[in-house]
């Protein structure tokens, strides 16, 4: 078995939106993304809203179909599989969404919510279903008393545990975590992050952890990929990325994060001006060039490829410095 559980190869996703009468705009949400999630690791996908990170997560479990590129799961090309064939692989995949208030059906009980993936997998044996649901609830630290409760009767932290139990009930090996703590208070966030870490260890899971919060990324990830305007601009192991970031955007992002350290003041920070561009299918050049203090004329004309510039450290920049 290869060490790679999931591989995206030059994956591209375009959303067509109607602008004015008969005028359409092809927005490139995900642009030639290549990345690998290895067995037993947490790969973080970091970026700001609209950068394509959630779309990439959905593509990786084929909840969306790419316009081009390949999706390889456990060595099998699942890019063009139909729903029936996909179901065989979906059992090994899970996803936890950002908002446990909207991702749980308010008219279903906890039991029904957690059991649903099993029913989709056509598991019929009711005692087996019950056993699996209880097992999943126990693994996320929820008491069996909540089986018959509805989502509105639960706290935000409990709801997110239910969402995690639902993702784990089919015994997946690859789980997409899409901002799983973004809508939780910090005191609850810490316990969910610890739970996710523990579950990964216990069940040997691999995570794609999608987030804009670099603090949680540093806590949970093994490797980090940074996305900007639909493209991966940097991938490295966590240590290199946080200590020696290479891409100017990664540097700016790290510098922007507010940190509860006495004496660190916003006044002394260099602030990145501007905002990310809308990327249409005829866009040329580096997506970050407009905001980049180091950009030269080449950056506006040619799109930099993602290249390995140090061992296991990839960057897409013409002007990076070490």
């Amino acid at each position: 078995m290869s060490e790679v559980i999931l591989r995206l190869e030059n994956v591209r996703k375009i959303f067509t939106i109607k602008r004015e009468f008969l005028r359409k705009l092809n927005l490139v949400a995900v642009d030639n993304v290549t990345l690998e999630v290895r067995y037993g690791e947490t790969l973080a996908l970091v970026g700001e809203s609209g950068c394509g990170k959630s779309t990439t997560g959905l593509l990786s479990i084929r909840l969306l179909k790419p316009d081009s590129g390949r999706i390889i799961f456990k060595g099998i090309d699942i890019t063009d599989l139909g729903e029936g064939d996909l179901r065989k692989y979906r059992r090994h995949m899970g996803i936890v969404f950002q908002n446990p208030y909207s991702s749980l059906n308010p008219r279903m009980t906890v039991f029904d919510i957690v059991a649903e993936p099993l029913k989709i997998q056509k598991l019929k044996d009711r005692s087996e279903i019950r056993k699996r649901v209880l097992e999943a609830l126990q693994s996320v630290g929820l008491p069996r008393e909540i089986l018959d409760r509805y989502p509105h009767e639960l706290s935000g932290g409990q709801r997110q545990r239910v969402a995690i139990a639902r993702a784990l009930v089919t015994h997946p090996i690859y789980v997409v975590l899409d901002e799983p703590t973004a809508s939780l208070d910090v005191s609850i966030q810490a316990s969910i992050l610890n739970l996710l870490k523990d579950l990964k260890k216990t069940y040997g899971l691999s995570y794609l952890y999608i987030s804009h919060d670099l603090g949680t990324v540093r806590y949970i990830a093994d490797r980090v990929s940074v996305m900007y305007a639909g493209r991966i601009v940097e991938i490295a192991d966590k240590h290199s990325l946080f200590n020696r970031p290479l891409h100017p955007y990664t540097k700016a992002l790290l510098n922007s994060v507010p940190i509860a350290e006495p004496g660190r003041r916003i006044k002394n920070k260099h602030i990145l001006e501007g905002e990310p561009p809308l990327v249409t299918d005829d866009y040329v050049g580096c997506r970050f060039a407009e905001r980049c203090p180091y950009a030269d004329s080449r950056c506006f004309k040619e799109t930099p490829p993602l290249e390995e510039v140090q061992k296991n450290h990839y960057v897409a920049c013409w002007r990076y410095t070490t």
């Binding site: 706290s155 932290g157 208070d185 910090v186 005191s187 609850i188 966030q189 810490a190 316990s191 992050l193 610890n194 919060d213 670099l214 603090g215 949680t216 990324v217 540093r218 806590y219 949970i220 946080f242 790290l254 994060v257 940190i259 509860a260 350290e261």
Partner: peptide, 23 residues
């Protein structure tokens, strides 16, 4: 507890200490 519960982008933390319970 509030300060301790926040994961940091500027340093490695081995294990966060969450607050027990809810408000």
């Amino acid at each position: 507890a509030l300060i301790m519960a926040v994961p940091r982008a500027d340093r490695e933390i081995e294990r966060l200490e969450p607050l027990v319970g809810e408000p």
